[in-house]
Design a protein around this nucleic acid. Structure first.
Length: 424
RNA sequence: GGAGACGUGUCCGAGUGGUUGAAGGAGCACGCCUGGAAAGUGUGUAUAUGGGAAACUGUAUCGCGAGUUCGAAUCUCGCCGUCUCCGCCA
């Protein structure tokens, strides 16, 4: 959520930045400023009346102590009149506040100045490419066939148990996934991230904190009976760990990592995009999250990008890094780098990580602050990234590393997987 | 799921209708004391938001929300959480 004071002081900048995100209702900015004026007026009126009530109450107390009952009764009548006047103001103030909140929540985060101006995924900027795209042998297959040949994942049974889009990992497939999770977590904790194992369901307030609510509830599984949401990413519970708190400056930066299952309804997704492991309702992911001082956040973003990049290098996968354009970025992000790996048999780039700086957009909602040198409390910046999303990594590994005698396991992973080759 | 107890500041803990943003203690910060430290001692020590150059000051906050009252940490209702006992259970 943007801060109204910032909007007030930078209205033109806000409008210009929103345009980069192709936000359709830039008129909202002026509307919010007007509403804020009115809100202030009404709040002041209400508070002034309250001040009168409060001081009169104290006087009543003093009068009662002196035994001046009549004078006290007179005061009471005056207070009652003020309160009546105030209750009228409060009703319209409440309506105005609700309206204001609903509207300011519609404003997406402002994109960083480095964000490309484009609108569609084609406008994303390729920052760099790494690794080498393998030359596959003639019989090379897409991962959904490899999976069958090697009996690694059983989609039919997954569909029988839950529905389409739910995978049943099996045997070496299950072990490969487990090995990757273990490897990613070890890699992250070695870099100073503290490991968390969060709840996989969260309440409304938590989903609101990271920006899933309101508006995006359709993307989450909702357990209505208990008012809980299945997490679409560990970002949601883990970033909220520090919700409503003031962090000691010496504790910053806070670096957290978590492995979790992620649940996404993916309503409306279809076509070749959802083949095999490309898009699932439930998938496994290891996430890294940082809470840092505002002055450090872009440096931290670069750090996190490097962190994820090295992991892909260890996995020996061909990858590229994209700087997302304004139109393709998420609502909450100020700058996002996507990581894609090339899945050779599909001849397709698959997104396996998305590393973003949210600046204060999430922390303003969650009220995550720290005390700066001057003793003033300031919102921290939140960042997160995947390191990494499992199914697509597995898809790319299977496709890129296939050979006539089996699937090569990257060196870094061998001690976790326990073998150098996945054989039939 | 049933019964009961509880939820106060960084922490412990007082407070059951009236100048209580909240006693007391611990912790922490700064100072005094000391050769240095401990002990002792003095002062300070919540957050948000409005006004003000500042000093200062209005408002809100004692789990959350609503209500009663001139006035609520204190009374009432709802919700959330913690603990104990019972039930169930990996």
């Amino acid at each position: 959520m943007l801060q109204i004071n910032f909007i007030k002081q930078n209205a033109d900048l806000v409008k210009e930045r929103l345009a980069v995100k192709h936000f359709g209702q830039i008129g909202l900015v002026d509307e919010l400023l007007q509403m804020d004026e009115e809100l202030r007026k009404q709040r002041l009126a209400s508070e002034n009346l309250q001040a009168s009530v409060n001081s009169a109450s104290k006087e009543i107390c003093a009068l009662m102590a002196k035994g001046e009952k009549e004078a006290a009764e007179e005061k009471k009548a005056a207070v009652t009149a003020w309160k009546e006047e105030q209750s009228g103001i409060k009703i319209s103030l409440q309506a105005l506040e609700d309206d204001f909140t609903a509207k300011i929540l519609q404003l997406p985060n402002l994109p960083h100045t480095s964000v490309p101006r484009g609108k569609t995924p084609e406008d994303n900027e390729v920052v760099l490419e790494g690794g080498s795209i393998p030359t596959l042998f003639a019989d090379a297959k897409p991962h959904w066939e490899i999976i069958k040949d090697y009996d690694l994942v059983d989609f039919e049974t997954g569909a029988k148990l839950a529905g389409s889009g739910f995978a049943l990992f099996k045997g070496k497939g299950a072990k490969l996934q487990r090995a990757l999770i273990q490897y990613f977590l070890d890699y992250n904790t070695a870099a100073g991230y503290t490991e968390y194992a969060p709840p996989l369901m969260v309440n409304e307030a938590t989903a609101y904190g990271t920006g899933q609510l309101p508006d995006k509830e359709g993307q989450m599984y909702h357990v209505t009976e208990d008012k809980l949401y299945l997490i679409p990413t560990a970002e949601v519970p883990v970033t909220n760990v520090y919700a409503n708190s003031i962090i000691r400056e010496s504790d910053l930066p806070i670096k957290m990592t978590a492995y979790s299952s992620c649940f996404r309804r993916e309503a409306g997704s279809f076509g070749s995009d959802v083949r095999g492991l490309n898009r699932l309702h439930q998938f496994e992911k290891v996430e890294v999250i940082q809470l840092v001082k505002a002055s450090h956040s872009y440096q931290t973003l670069e750090e996190m990008v490097n962190h994820v990049e090295r992991l892909l290098q260890f996995l020996e996968l061909p990858y590229r890094i994209l700087r997302l354009c304004g139109g393709d970025m998420s609502f909450t992000s100020a700058l996002t780098y996507d990581f894609e790996v090339f899945s050779a048999a599909q001849q397709k780039w698959l997104e396996v990580s998305s590393v973003s700086n949210f600046e204060t957009f999430q922390t303003n909602r969650m009220k995550i602050r720290y005390k700066n040198e001057e003793g003033k409390t300031e919102l921290v910046h939140s960042l997160n990234g995947s390191s990494l999303a499992l199914p697509r990594i597995i898809a790319a590994l299977l496709e890129n590393n296939q050979s006539e005698n089996g699937i090569h396991v990257p060196k870094a992973l061998q001690r976790y997987f326990g073998a150098a080759l996945i054989e039939r």
